[in-house]
Amino acid sequence: MRDAFDNVNPVVAFVFFVFALLMPMLLLHPVMLGISLFCAVVWLFFIKGRGAFMYLVKFVIPITILTAILNPVFNHAGVTILFYIRDNPVTRESIIYGAASAVMLASVVTWFACFNHIFTSDKTVYLLGRFAPGLSLILSMSLRFVPLFTAQAKRIALAQRGAGMGTGGGNIIARAKSGLSIISSLITWSLESSVTTADSMRARGYGLHPRRSFANYRFDKRDALIGSALTLGIVATGLAAYLKLISVRYFPSIKLNEASPLFLAFCAVYALTLLIPVTMNLSEALKWRSLRSKI
């Protein structure tokens, strides 16, 4: 299914992902980490459905557990010693810090999974095209060339096999020789064909200045709305950090900020910002349902 966030202008989407990925690493506050992980996981379920479960079990949970275990084993800072392993103290602070960094890692990895799904090559090409048209074109050309190159490699290998000179028969040296000759012919082919590509690009005016990238995405009212909500969230986070509304210290002893009403309000803002994609998905689902019930 198409995700509701897919249609958001790539610039806005990109800013969102930067925010979502950076905040857990910068804030390291247990509450913020929890919120971040929760929002990422919920969205992943919207994107991948049941596939999200497999992703979590196979990938996210193992690295989380590993980080949570490894930190107290190697990190002995902290004042509250719980017990000793081979004369090395295991402290309460390092256990909690390990758990926090595990959650941080888990949320970053989950956000990345969402990013990979939403941020297609087209969006990257568009985003780069805004700022560096040349670079954007190079990216697009590589995206074209890589599959072409692999397909050609397969074809050459098949053609060589048809003449009894493939990598499938003979002794190791013969096979290696055949493999090398395939690679060399692949290189010749790519050089020869790049001449054609260069001609075709030149024939269509490549090299004229200034180059302008075609925008495959528009910036509409909804993008403006999401953009302003996002800006609000970013500014609020900056303010909260600046005013020390959120602060955390793990070593030598754990110290958190007070749970003031302002702090709780900020938590809500942070959660709502990260929930933008989920909210969009929910409202879209509701709309469709009401549309269908009218029919």
């Binding site: 090409v125 054609t196 075609f214």
Partner: peptide, 27 residues
């Protein structure tokens, strides 16, 4: 100018980008 081999004339990865290529060059 259109050449013989369609495969190698195409420079970019998507149809929309290929169509826009010349206009992008012209700015």
């Amino acid at each position: 100018f259109v050449m013989q081999d369609p495969e190698m004339q195409i420079a970019t990865d998507k149809v929309w980008h290929e169509l826009a290529f010349g206009l992008e060059s012209l700015g």
